[in-house]
């Protein structure tokens, strides 16, 4: 049953997404295009958080880098969407590579903290580096994109939405294909038992670096889609609340599922946009309470760690090794 259910749901979701711009008005199409770009960032978050076990709050940094790179390329060099997506992906990957020394040794809460600091610093930088990013006013009037050489430029909200949908579908398909290979197995193995994977001769640090850079490239490509869909980029698109919403979407969608993350993020962002329209004054309060409720509802279901393997009867019941206590070197107050 479940085997049949998943593809059915996937096909239904895809059909709904393709049909959407003919059902809703232009404004909603534009909102949906932006939401899909965020959903693509969420795929990167799920790749890091769920598949590789590296929780992150900082994917807005490569997302912002990609958005500005895409907007600048679109404005000055080339209006071909494929080029913009590639350049933006490279910008996101480059930013992720630059922050690798910070994130490589960190896991768990420490990683959340460092990635959050990196993401927030990137937003501050975007707001202050006025000569390139336009500061807090943002970059407006980005020239319309043409998807490929020889195709017409995208002038309507519906066309921009469909372009976003095609790019997102291609990239998500690529991620899903790669995860079906050995790479996916290695990433999951690193999440479940890093010490054992390392002991068996795998270079875990290289895997971790690779998944960080890949997630950065995905977020960068999503940034270019945002610039195309919205024709405007400003630091407000990459705030702290965006990272938290993405994380909420990924948790709601099931952390280890890439498709679930996409759907979860789209649902959460759509709910946010609807809430801000329906309850202009109280939206942040309701949204905040929703976060608290979700955190209380999900704990047992999302614990995700498989139960410990039963010990052989002869093994002494000493202190459990690896995961029994937090290493004091990672956290701890030293005066």
């Amino acid at each position: 049953m479940v085997r049949l259910l998943r593809p059915t749901v996937a096909v239904a979701v895809l059909a709904g997404l393709v049909a959407a711009p003919w059902v809703v008005d232009d404004y909603t199409s534009a909102l949906l295009a932006r939401t899909l770009a965020l959903g693509l960032v969420a795929v990167g978050v799920a790749l890091l958080t769920g598949v590789a076990g590296l929780p992150t709050l900082g994917q807005t940094a490569p997302y912002a880098a990609g958005a500005y790179a895409g907007a600048l390329v679109g404005g000055h060099l080339c209006d071909v969407g494929a080029v913009q997506v590639l350049v933006a992906g490279a910008a996101g990957a480059a930013l992720a590579t630059a922050t690798l020394p910070l994130v490589l040794p960190a896991r768990g809460v420490v990683l959340l903290m460092i990635t959050l600091a990196v993401g927030e610093l990137a937003v501050v930088l975007a707001g202050r580096w006025t000569s390139v990013t336009g500061g807090t006013d943002g970059l407006a009037g980005i020239a319309p994109t043409r998807p490929l050489w020889g195709l017409p430029v995208l002038t309507t909200d519906r066309a921009r939405y469909l372009y976003t949908l095609v790019v997102v579908a291609v990239l998500v398909g690529l991620v899903l294909l790669v995860l079906r290979t050995r790479v996916g197995l290695l990433l999951r193995a690193g999440r479940d038992d890093e010490a054992r994977l390392r002991a068996s001769g795998h270079r875990v640090a290289a895997h971790v670096a690779g998944v960080h850079v890949a997630a950065g490239a995905i977020a960068g490509a999503a940034g270019s889609l945002l610039a195309t869909a919205q024709q405007y980029v400003s630091p407000a698109d990459f705030g702290f609340d965006t990272s938290a919403l993405l994380l909420l979407g990924v948790v709601v969608g099931g952390t280890a599922s890439v498709g679930g993350a996409l759907v979860g993020a789209v649902l959460v962002v759509a709910a946010r946009d609807w809430l801000f329209g329906a309850l202009p004054g109280q939206a942040p309060l309701v949204l905040g309470l929703a976060f608290v409720v979700v955190a209380h509802l999900l704990p047992t279901a999302r614990r995700a760690r498989p139960p410990a393997r039963p010990r052989p009867a002869s093994a002494p019941l000493g202190p459990r090794p690896a995961d029994a206590r937090r290493p004091t070197s990672a956290t701890g107050v030293r005066a």
Binding site: D241, A244, L247, V251, L285, L287, P299, R303
Partner: peptide, 28 residues
Amino acid sequence: TRVGAAGHLNQALLTFGVALAGGSLLVA
């Protein structure tokens, strides 16, 4: 305390929710 053992993702979500709701109440 109710979420405590359930991992840092839930902690981050919960504390962010408190921040969002608290900030909204302060502005109100």
